[in-house]
Simulated scan of single mutants.
Amino acid sequence: MTRLTLRITGRDLPGRGCGDFSDVHAGVQRGKDPEQLVPADAEKALFDITADVVRVPDGTTDFRGPYVQGRRGERFFYLTWGELPSGGSFTMFRRAKLFFADIPEELVASGAAETSLGLTDCHGLPLCAAVRPPRVVWLPGAGGA
């Protein structure tokens, strides 16, 4: 088992007030909870996550860890969007899925990958749903194994 470190740099955030939402924040989902929350009017958002990389008996690669979602062969992680009023709690209203299978095998083997991703959709709202290439492009990351 090896460790994969991912850095996601979010740029072009939609703003704290977008659509019907206010006090908007973005984060990564760890289990069922958001973490690394960043206000959606920030210049950029940095998210760092890790996943364990394992070879399963059939020889394929699998991913495990608190950020990993989905079934084997369909693993992904979430960028989550929600409202976080001052003194209140985070209420999620949308998520974006990024898939481990879209990370090139050589980057998985190196132990580190990163991407820079626009986080506003074509309607000026927080990016959501499945985010696949060419929208997300994984590059070599620093700090690999």
Rank of each mutant, 00 (worst) to 15 (best):
L127D: 04
T50N: 09
V136Q: 02
E74N: 15
G111R: 02
D23V: 08
L6I: 06
F77W: 15
P126F: 04
A145G: 11
G118V: 12
P140D: 08
V131N: 08
S89P: 11
L139A: 15
P126H: 06
Y67V: 03
L107C: 01
L125W: 11
Q29H: 05
R95K: 15
F90H: 13
I8D: 01
D52H: 00
G87K: 02
P34Y: 00
R71H: 04
G143H: 07
D41Y: 09
R94E: 10
A130V: 00
V68Y: 11
L125C: 09
S86R: 12
A51E: 01
R64I: 02
D58H: 03
T60G: 04
F99Q: 02
L139V: 14
E105I: 10
F93A: 06
D41T: 05
V53A: 00
R135E: 13
V38D: 00
S22D: 13
V24Q: 11
R95M: 09
P133Y: 12
A112I: 06
G141P: 03
A130W: 00
L107S: 02
V108K: 09
P104C: 08
G88C: 14
L46W: 01
P57A: 13
D41K: 06
L13D: 05
L4I: 00
F76G: 02
G144E: 05
Y78C: 09
A129W: 05
D102W: 01
S89W: 14
D121V: 05
L119D: 02
V68P: 09
P85Q: 08
E74R: 15
W81P: 01
G15C: 04
F90W: 11
K32G: 15
L46R: 02
G118Q: 13
S86H: 11
A145C: 10
D20M: 08
R16V: 14
P14W: 09
V56T: 14
F21Y: 13
P133V: 10
F77M: 07
K97S: 00
T60V: 00
A129G: 03
G143Y: 07
G27I: 11
E83Q: 15
A40W: 00
R55T: 15
L37R: 15
